[in-house]
């Protein structure tokens, strides 16, 4: 792709906005349509675009397989541990009301953390799947 300057430039131009949009979908999920699933996929899409244009090796420099693996696990753990914390605070599993002193704040914090966990995992998994197929020939 080295010679396709148009693609490289356009991609470089787009990438920040895609990532930004992903973050918007992620954090606006509390109030409007959006959430971790969608955000994660959009985030991963940006990354996959990057890998397509600039090559797998460069992409791996940004996110190594180990990092992805850790992110994948960390997102899920974040989700699950929120539930554990609510339990420790005396509520049921994932009962965000108990996260903070008053239920409204608790709900806010809870859904934010949970969706963040989902977003991280989904993004990492999507990229991993992509790498899983794309890297296959190199082995």
């Amino acid at each position: 792709m080295k010679r396709h300057s148009v693609l490289r430039v356009v991609a470089k131009l787009f990438l920040p906005y895609i990532l930004l949009f992903a973050l918007y979908v992620q954090f606006h999920g509390d109030f409007g349509p959006g959430g971790g699933f969608q955000a994660g996929v959009i985030f991963a899409a940006a990354f996959i675009l990057y890998a397509l244009i600039f090559g797998l090796r460069t992409a791996h420099k940004v996110a190594s397989a180990d990092l992805l693996r850790i992110l994948m696990a960390a997102g899920l753990l974040l989700y699950a541990s929120v539930g554990i914390v609510t339990m420790l605070k005396g509520g049921a599993y994932l009962d965000y009301n108990f996260l903070r002193h008053d239920p409204v704040h608790g709900q806010h914090l809870g859904i934010l953390l949970v969706e963040l966990g989902v977003g991280v995992t989904v993004a990492a998994v999507m990229v991993t799947i992509f790498f899983g197929f794309a890297d296959r020939k190199n082995r």
Partner: peptide
Amino acid sequence: MIRENLPALQVVIPLMAAPICILF
């Protein structure tokens, strides 16, 4: 506390253990 949350923990503990395996 564990006792009343046992139904959730029944599923959550193995679920959480899986990503930890990946981490290690």
